[in-house]
Write a protein that binds this DNA or RNA. Structure first.
Length: 258
DNA sequence: ATGACTTACCCGGTAAGA
């Protein structure tokens, strides 16, 4: 089974690329972030015609997450919205059961500029995620928490670490909170299978970043111990970043033993 | 540290992304 995450940066603008990618790479499960559209605008017909069922949690202009699963799989929503703050109306989390697999799709706040209220919101959101994740990590059910974490975990995850010194994705508080999340027992799939190499999932639109391979790793798939035992392979569909009108993120995926 | 692109909004300048 192939499980992917893809920050589309606007699903309206990205629908042709998404459909092409689904056709060519055929993930069994695809989690989307930054759809930037209200629920009523979700292209459910095109997704269905591509062979996928879907659940989605949209919002006007910003954010928005969805879980797609091939139509031979059972897809049932478990919940939407991250618990812990009833005032938080941003659409950044959706959770589903795909057959026996529990899937949490997330779009963590970027947090820039830091310091400031946006960074405070990011750190608070991370703490809420840590609380949520604690209830999932030790389940006997396989669980994957995946999406755009807006966290660059280490120097190995950025083309030039000094360029991120003041960036919310790389500040010590951000990395420390992410480390506490991993320490619950989650496996960072891409880093575990590739302990020593630079891997990027995002290339800025500015300054020909993709052409220079000036990337960073922001999109992660975290597996609980039950699922980590079944991890087989992983990859980043970097070539998708080179298509016409690309998202600034590339699809990132794992395969697991059935 | 910012913003050389890109998107969405409401209709061309602003806000947001990372």
């Amino acid at each position: 089974m192939k499980i992917a995450t893809y920050n589309v940066n606007g699903l309206n603008a990205r629908l042709p690329s998404l459909l092409r990618w689904l056709q060519e790479e055929a993930p069994d499960v695809a989690c989307l972030q930054e759809m930037k559209m209200i629920d009523e605008k979700f292209p459910s017909l095109a997704i269905m015609n591509a062979g996928y069922n879907a659940i989605w949690h949209g919002q006007k202009s910003w954010n928005g997450v969805a879980i797609l699963a091939k139509n031979n799989l059972e897809l049932n929503e478990v919940g939407r919205g991250l618990p812990g703050d009833p005032e938080d109306l941003q659409s950044r989390f959706i959770e589903a059961r795909v057959n026996d697999l529990l899937v949490g799709c997330l779009y963590l706040p970027n947090g820039n500029p830091a310091p400031g209220p946006k960074f405070d919101y990011k750190l608070a959101w991370l703490e809420r995620l840590i609380t949520k994740a604690k209830s999932l990590v030790e389940l006997e059910t396989p669980v994957v928490l995946l999406g755009d974490y807006n966290v660059v975990p280490t120097d190995l995850d950025v083309y030039k670490p000094e360029r991120l010194t003041y960036d919310a994705v790389f500040l010590p508080e951000t990395k420390e909170a992410y480390r506490r999340l991993l320490d619950q027992g989650w496996t960072d799939a891409l880093r575990t299978l590739n302990p020593d190499i630079k891997i990027y999932t995002f290339w800025d639109y500015f300054r020909n970043s993709y052409g220079r391979d000036a990337g960073i790793r922001l999109d992660h798939l975290l597996l609980n111990p039950v699922l980590a035992k079944r991890l087989q392979t992983c990859g980043v569909d970097r070539h998708v970043r080179g298509w016409e009108k690309p998202s600034d993120h590339a699809p990132t995926w794992i395969t697991i033993e059935d």
